[in-house]
Design a protein around this nucleic acid. Structure first.
Lengths: 344, 344
DNA sequence: CTGAAAGCGCTTACAG
DNA sequence: CTGAAAGCGCTTACAG
C-alpha cells in the first residue's frame, strides 16, 4: 500500500532534516527558533505534497492522538437499550467533534469472559483517554488503566476504586425525591416503589431519593424488587391503601412494562384507580397519557463526560476539572398523578 | 504514563528475544516452528504479566489493527438526520462487533473547508479501512486514499472515480418503480413526483425508478423539484387531473413536510382527494395513516458494508468480494393509496 | 529451527 | 539557532 508523503519527503525537498520538519509542522516546542525562511520552505513543501501526519506514528512517538474512546460494557446497540444509549452517544459525538477529537467505539465482548474483556479494555489505550458506560463494570481492568495514569471517565456515578474515578452522572437522588414530593403534594400518603432486583449505582440512587422524599414528606413507602418471573400484584396494593406506584426506569423498561401490564390485567386504570410515576421516562412507544417522571439528561451527560475527559487528557488548563459531576434531571409533570386532596 | 508490560519484558522473563515473543504471541507466521516449550514459556510469562499488545505499535509495524473507520460527511448526529443515520450505525456496529473489529468514528468538519476535510479524511488511515457515508463526498481525498491502496467502501451507491469504488447501497430504482406500479394498479394514471432540488445518487436513482415505472405502466408523470422557498401547489395538481403525489424521502424529510403541509393547507385530505406515497418512509413522528412506500434497509446496508470492507482489508478469502451491492427495499403497502379502479 | 537487525513515521531530548 | 541520534513497541525480512 503506497502511503502518502512523509516528513522525510518534505525534508528532502526543503533541504532540511526530517526532525526539523517535525518541529515546523508539529507546532510543538514553540520555544524553538527556526529561521522564518526555513519554516516557509518546509510549509511550502508540505503543502505541495499534500502532507498529513500519520496518526499512528504520531501517537506512538508522542502519546497524543486527538482520539477519545467510548467503551460500552453491554453489547452496544441491542434494540432495547437503544433509547438510553443513543442520546448519550449523540452528546459524546457532538462534543468530541467540537473539540476536534475523533471517537473510537469499543464494545465489551458479548461473551463477557473476563480475560477477553480485560484485553479489550486495555485496547482502549489506543485512544488518549476513554469514557466507560454500563450498569456494571469490572473493577480490575479499570484499576489497571487508572493507576497507569490513563485518563478514564465514567458516564454515570460510580463508586469503584474508593470513588476516586471521575464521572459525569445524573442526580437521581434529588430527582427521585422530587417525584415523591409531587405525589405527596397531590395528597398521596401511601406509595409503592417498584425497582429492579439488580444493584447498580443508578438503582441505589433512585431508591435513596425515594426514601429521602418519603421521609421528608411523611409518606408511607413500600419498596418491592421486581425479579423476572414474579408478577406485581396491583390488587394487593390498592387493598393495602396504596394510591400511587412509582417504578424505576431501566434500560430495558422491564419494570415499567410489568407494572403497566399487571395494572391493566387487574382491571385498574391510571390514574383513576392508581397514580403512576416513573423515575425517568417510560420506554419508547408507550402510548396513553404522558407519564409523570423526569428527564435523564443523557445528551448532556455525554457532552460533559467528553469535556471532563478532554480536560484530563490535556491537564494544562487553569482550573483543575471537577472530577465528579451530577447533572440535574428536569421534571416531567405528566398526566398520571391524580390529585387526591384539594388544598396545596 | 507508566504503560503496561511490553514484549521486551516477556522476553526477559522467558529468556528469549523480543522478536520471538512477537512470533509466539502474534500468531503470525504460522509456518515458523518454535519449540513447544519455548512457546509455553513465552505464553506463561505473557499471562503472568497480563500482557496486551499495544495497538498503536502493532499498527505502525504491521498495517493491521482490527479497527474499521466510519467517516460521515455531514455533521454526524444532528437531530434531523438521526433517523436515517442511526440504523446504519447500528448495523455497522453489530457487524464490526461480530467480526471482532473496533469502530472509529470520523466526522467531516462542519466548517467543511476543503483542506480541513482533506486532513480528516487522510486521518482515516488510522483504521485498516474506512466506510464513507453522506449524500455528497469530495472526490479528491477519496481518490488519494483509494489509489494508495487503502480499503474504502461507500454506504450508498456512488459513481465517483468512474464507478470503481466499492459500495453497498439500496436498490432505489426497483423500489421506486414498484411504488409507481402499485399506484398504476390502483388505477392512477396521472401522478406528480416531488423531489429535492439536490443531485445525489440516491435522488437520481429514485427519479429513474419513477420514470421507468411510469413508462412501464403508461402512467403520466410530472416531476417537480422542491427548492426551499417555493411551496408545492396541490390545488393545481388536482386541477390538472393528478390523483396521486409521490415524494422523495430525504434525510431531513423536507419534501414530505412541505407536501403534507401544502395538501392540508389546500383543504385536501389524503387519500380521499389525493393519494400519497413516499419513496422510503415518512419522517419520524408522522401521525395519521401509514404512508405507502418502502423500507430502506439501512441496518443491512451497514452490516453489508462492514462485511465488504472486512473482505477488502483481508483479501485472502477464497471468493473475491462483489464490490457493488444493491440491497432490495421491502415495500410498505400503507393506507394512503386510494383504489380508483375496481378491477385488478 | 531460532535470534539479531532493520524499519514503520513520528517526537523529543541532546549535541553542535 | 539547527541537525543527528535515539526511541516509541511492535513485525518481518534476513542471517545463522
Amino acid at each position: 500500500m503506497a502511503r502518502g508523503p512523509r516528513q522525510a519527503d518534505i525534508a528532502r525537498i526543503a533541504g532540511v532534516s526530517q526532525a526539523t520538519v517535525s518541529v515546523v509542522l508539529g507546532g510543538n516546542r514553540a520555544g524553538v527558533r527556526l529561521a522564518e525562511s526555513t519554516r516557509r520552505r518546509v510549509r511550502a513543501a508540505a503543502e505541495e505534497l499534500g502532507y498529513v501526519p500519520d496518526p499512528v506514528a504520531t501517537r506512538l512517538a508522542s502519546s497524543r492522538n486527538n482520539l477519545l474512546g467510548l467503551y460500552t460494557f453491554t453489547a452496544t446497540f441491542p434494540t432495547d437499550v437503544a433509547d438510553s444509549y443513543y442520546p448519550i452517544l449523540v452528546g459524546v459525538e457532538e462534543e468530541a467533534a467540537e473539540l476536534g477529537q475523533d471517537l473510537i467505539l469499543f464494545t465489551g465482548s458479548s461473551a463477557g469472559t473476563r480475560t477477553h474483556d480485560h484485553a479489550r479494555i486495555r485496547r482502549t489505550r489506543l485512544a488518549d483517554g476513554c469514557l466507560f458506560l454500563g450498569r456494571h463494570v469490572p473493577d480490575e481492568p479499570i484499576r489497571e488503566l487508572v493507576t497507569s495514569g490513563f485518563p478514564v471517565v465514567y458516564i454515570g456515578r460510580r463508586e469503584e476504586l474508593g470513588g476516586t474515578i471521575p464521572y459525569v452522572g445524573a442526580d437521581y437522588v434529588s430527582a427521585s425525591a422530587a417525584v415523591i414530593g409531587r405525589l405527596a403534594e397531590a395528597g398521596h400518603t401511601s406509595i409503592r416503589y417498584l425497582r429492579e432486583d439488580d444493584d447498580a449505582p443508578s438503582s441505589r440512587d433512585r431508591e435513596r431519593g425515594v426514601l429521602e422524599g418519603a421521609a421528608a414528606h411523611r409518606v408511607d413507602i413500600g419498596v418491592e424488587r421486581f425479579a423476572g418471573g414474579r408478577l406485581p400484584c396491583p390488587r394487593r396494593w390498592t387493598a393495602d391503601g396504596v394510591t400511587a406506584v412509582v417504578v424505576e426506569e431501566t434500560d430495558t423498561g422491564a419494570v415499567f412494562h410489568a407494572v403497566t401490564r399487571a395494572v391493566a390485567g387487574a382491571g385498574l386504570s391510571v390514574p383513576q384507580d392508581l397514580s403512576l410515576a416513573v423515575l425517568g421516562r417510560p420506554p419508547a412507544g408507550t402510548t396513553g397519557p404522558v407519564v409523570s417522571g423526569f428527564e435523564v439528561p443523557r445528551r448532556e451527560m455525554g457532552r460533559g463526560a467528553v469535556r471532563l475527559l478532554a480536560a484530563l487528557v490535556e491537564p494544562d488548563r487553569r482550573a483543575p476539572a471537577e472530577p465528579h459531576r451530577l447533572l440535574p434531571c428536569a421534571p416531567v409533570a405528566g398526566d398520571t398523578i391524580r390529585r387526591i386532596r384539594e388544598e396545596a
